[in-house]
């Protein structure tokens, strides 16, 4: 019973993953690529949704376009460039490295190095001068407790 439930749920999740049932592919690899691209391309209308999730008309059109381009045998890169030519870098969820975006990667590294530098440079504290005396006192107290 439990295994059957599991199989049923697994099947249900597969149908949720499928974006559009009316986009048929003969080549399973193309289908995978279609799902990948529609997940990575961003809808210009409903921002912060990818075109697989969005129900805006433009998202429908872009899915259709991705499908036709795939059917024409275009590669993943060509399709991404096609969309970028029309909607800018905005349309792809992976930002390109440019002078303006390099800071996304550089800033955390800079931060790490600055902190490392500060930690290394910090002078190690000299042991307190009367620590030896204090230790002796503590040992004496311990001995007292034991006796």
């Amino acid at each position: 019973m439990r295994t059957w439930m599991f199989v049923l749920l697994a099947l249900a999740s597969v149908s949720v993953l499928a974006v559009e049932d009316n986009y048929g592919f003969n080549d399973p690899e193309q289908r995978v690529l279609f799902l990948k691209l529609t997940a990575e391309l961003r809808c210009p209308m409903c921002q912060n949704q990818n075109i697989a999730d969005s129900d805006a008309m433009i998202a429908h059109d872009m899915r259709r376009k991705v499908y036709t381009l795939l059917k024409q045998g275009k590669s993943e890169e060509e399709i991404v460039t096609y969309m970028k030519d029309r909607y800018g870098d905005f349309v792809y969820y992976k930002p390109p490295v440019t002078a303006a975006t390099i800071w996304l990667w550089a800033l955390p590294l800079v931060f790490i190095f600055v902190v490392l530098f500060l930690v290394m440079r910090r002078p190690s504290k000299a042991p307190l001068p009367d620590q030896g005396a204090k230790l002796k006192q503590a040992e004496a107290m311990l001995k007292q407790d034991k006796s």
């Binding site: 210009p44 008309m57 433009i58 029309r86 800018g88």
Partner: peptide
């Protein structure tokens, strides 16, 4: 053509 022009709506 709308797609070519970058129309969003």
């Amino acid at each position: 053509t709308s797609l070519d022009l970058g129309v969003t709506g």
